[in-house]
């Protein structure tokens, strides 16, 4: 399913989108399908799967540990695409990974593999628009959205360029720093939501872990929230994982409904 179609549906229903991240293959390749299914049961609108990279500079300790477990569990790009193709979800799937894995596979091959396995969008945290022309082209050729990030530090000039190029949704980085659970919502978040003026849906991530934060962000004008570390934390603890993933998804989804 295409990302913009999903957001259109949600708009009609007056709901904010819940985008859930887990790292593919964490802790073992076989676990991901079950976890994704639980998240979908809990009401997740878009699944964001991490393709683990050895040096994840944009991620905090929680997701780093998830990536480490996935790599030790044997997750590879080949296995990743095979696993994603077997998911057969009725909601959009996006892949989040670092540029070297895309570069090494070849941009054309990577985007083709995305399209063939049912992935609708790509998020690359270490690829600013200055360096993304080639990947953007490859994405267009395969009808994949390249999802750009904007940060509180993004200048207006850069913002204009990113908004002109980004498709699917715009990923608003809620705060300076890496991924990870925080209890509050940064003051800069609301400001950033207001600054991002675009028809493309806006989803806010980095630091969001509970329903209260999600509700606050949707109320502030975002079209969706992205939650990662809180789910990865559940996987790390390893107890009642599917039930707890589903319950947290449900809580977040309820609070994203406005």
């Amino acid at each position: 399913m295409r990302i913009d179609e999903k957001f259109r549906q949600l708009k009609v229903r007056k709901e904010g989108a819940l985008i859930a991240y887990i790292c593919a293959g964490d802790p073992l390749p076989a676990a991901t399908k079950e976890y994704v299914t639980a998240l979908v049961r809990g009401g997740v609108d878009i699944i964001e799967l991490g393709l683990p990279f050895s040096d994840p500079v944009a991620d905090g300790p929680t997701i780093q540990a998830g990536i480490q477990r996935a790599l030790e569990g044997g997750m590879t790009p080949d296995l990743f695409f095979k696993m994603v193709a077997s998911l057969k979800l009725h909601i959009p799937i996006v892949v989040m990974t670092y540029y070297n894995l895309i570069f090494k596979r070849g941009l054309a091959r990577f985007t083709k593999d995305c399209a063939a396995s049912g992935i609708s969008g790509i998020i690359v945290p270490d690829l600013p628009p200055e360096e993304s022309d080639e990947l953007l082209q490859a994405c267009k050729e395969n009808d994949i959205d390249l999802i750009y990030l904007v940060a509180p530090t993004t200048t207006q000039e850069r913002m204009d360029r990113i908004l002109a190029e980004g498709t699917g949704f715009i990923y608003l980085v809620a705060r300076l720093g890496v991924t990870g659970v925080r209890s509050d919502v940064a003051g800069s978040t609301g400001e950033l939501i207001k600054r991002v003026k675009t028809a493309t849906p806006k989803a806010v991530g980095f630091g969001i872990s509970n329903g209260k934060q999600a509700a606050q962000i949707i109320r502030a004008g975002a079209d969706g929230v992205i939650v990662g570390s809180a789910f990865v934390d559940i996987i790390a603890k390893g107890e009642d994982v599917t039930a707890r993933l589903e319950a947290l998804a449900r809580e977040l989804k309820e609070c994203s409904k406005n």
Partner: peptide
């Protein structure tokens, strides 16, 4: 120029781009 031939560039999170500028 941010590059040496095809090498170099600025492959960093968006947050850092203004700092590099």
């Amino acid at each position: 120029s941010t590059k040496f031939g095809k090498y170099g560039g600025q492959f960093v999170p968006e947050v850092l781009m203004p700092a590099l500028e």
